[in-house]
Each structure stands twice: as C-alpha cells, then as structure tokens.
Design a binder for these strands. Structure first.
Lengths: 128, 128
DNA sequence: AACCAATTACGAACTTCTTCGTTGACATCT
DNA sequence: AGATGTCAACGAAGAAGTTCGTAATTGGTT
C-alpha cells in the first residue's frame, strides 16, 4: 500500500470539496448548481477543477452511464487537520495555545461552544 | 484615517514576515541571511518579494544611507487573526470549536499548554 | 579619477491557479 | 435520419506568485 500524501487543497479546491462533503458523490452539474449559489462559477470551470483534482487524487471519478460521478478522496477532518497543522507551523510557531487564543478572539465562540471545548480539555488530560 | 485592509499574505510572504517579526526592522541582506537558514533562497528573490510586499503595504521601507530598511506593517497577531478567521470560514463552517478540536488533535499540546488554554477559557466566561 | 564591492532596480521566465470558449461524443426527440 | 441537448475533453488565456539573471547606482578605496 502506498499511503500517498494528498496535496494541500487550494482555496478554490476547498470550495468544491465542501460541496462534495455535503452532497456526497455527485455529478459536475450537481456540484456546479450548489457552488453557483455561493460563488458565481461557470460549469466548465467546475469541471476543469474536478479534473485537476482527480489528477491530484483529491477526488475520485466513476463513470456512470453517460456522466461521471465525483467523490471526495480527501476527507473533511483529514483536510482540516492538514490545514491546521500547516497554519500552526507557518504562523504560530507550532503553538496550539496561540492558535486557540487567536481562534477565540477572532470569532466569538458561543457559550455552548466554550463548554464543549472545556469538556474536550477534560478528556484530553488537561484536568488538574 | 483610512483603515486600509491589508491583503492576506501568501506563504512566501509569511516566511519573510516571520523574519521581520523576529528581527525587527532590517535590511534585505539581514533578512536574506536568516531566511536562507530555513529555506534556500536567493538574495534578489528576497529583495523582489520585499518590493512587492511594500507595494501591498505589508511592509514599509525607509532609506537609510546606502541601503533600505524594511519593517513589517502587518503585525503578527493581526496576521494570525486574519489567517485564523479565514481558515475558520473556509474549512470549519465558522465553528471555533471544530478548529480547536482539530488543533488539539494535530499537534500534541503540552500539559502546560492545556492548562493555559483552560485558564483562558475561565477568563472568557466559559466557566460554569 | 578609476575601481571595487554592495545594493537596488528591472524585467524575463516559470509555475500554479483559475476561468472559459470551443469541440466532439453520445443520447433523445421528432 | 436529422436536429437538439447534455456532457466531457481540450486548449488558450489571464492572473498571481516565485525565482533569478543582469543592469544601474552608490559609497568607499587606492
């Protein structure tokens, strides 16, 4: 087995991956329709990007009748981990603390979220 | 006053900003020497990037004798906030919780860090 | 004044990402 | 069969980022 490291998706690719994560496997048309509601895009643009992403291994393609069905190969949590690790190294000297601080300042986390984070810390062994 | 929104720095630009944040205002040569230890780069490459970054407003330039001295205009915490907000929107549906979870899973945070995060939460009002 | 080293400026080349127009294949409808 | 519509494939073009070779400038030295 070759645990090939998938490349870090670009912003545009990430937008498409988001759609695939939500819809599951879908055709170019379906992906395009959804993507078009959040950002104006041409059909062939989405198609081209899916083709490139297929080459990169970010998505897989299955021929189904007359059309093709695309599916994300890079999982959502996998991508998140990738991006966070990247950002951690490049902008926070690898310090998760600094990143968390920044995250809490950037968006006001809801009370429920703060509690959830606290519980998460408990499980993580940070409990005194 | 014009609170001009500085652009999001690219990865290459971020590498240079890191150096400027560490060294403070410095010449191209100084920046190049430091940057060269972590990633092989040519002198003129660093110069060119600093010129472009000056156009963008990410750094400022002061002529000093025969050389120029560059200084970061985009602050470190400012950049961090920018990047985190961006990532939050693009990959975590704006959920700080998900990002924090991912951060804690990506790099093993030290015990000290976990405690610090907990204290941070206390101050943030997440305490029951 | 002539020369040398350091530094900046300029611009070309290359890569990657993104967008889109055009074409050709294939199926359906009349 | 011929017209029409849908879709994938392809290539071109543009924008942005990166790298670097080369020229021009300047200060100091002999």
């Amino acid at each position: 087995m070759t645990p090939k490291p998938l490349p870090k998706p670009t912003d545009g690719e990430l937008a498409i991956l988001r759609v695939l994560w939500r819809l599951g496997p879908c055709t170019v048309r379906q992906a395009h329709e959804v993507l078009n509601t959040e950002r104006e895009t041409g059909y062939t643009t989405v198609l081209k990007m899916l083709q490139i992403m297929t080459e990169k291994g970010l998505v897989s393609r299955v021929e189904e009748g007359r059309g093709h069905v695309y599916q994300a190969q890079l999982g959502e949590s996998q991508a998140q981990k990738h991006l966070v690790t990247d950002l951690l190294d490049k902008a926070f000297q690898g310090s998760a603390l600094k990143l968390v601080m920044s995250a809490l300042q950037s968006k006001k986390a809801s009370k429920a979220e703060l509690e959830a984070i606290r519980r998460l810390l408990d499980e993580h062994g940070g409990k005194p």
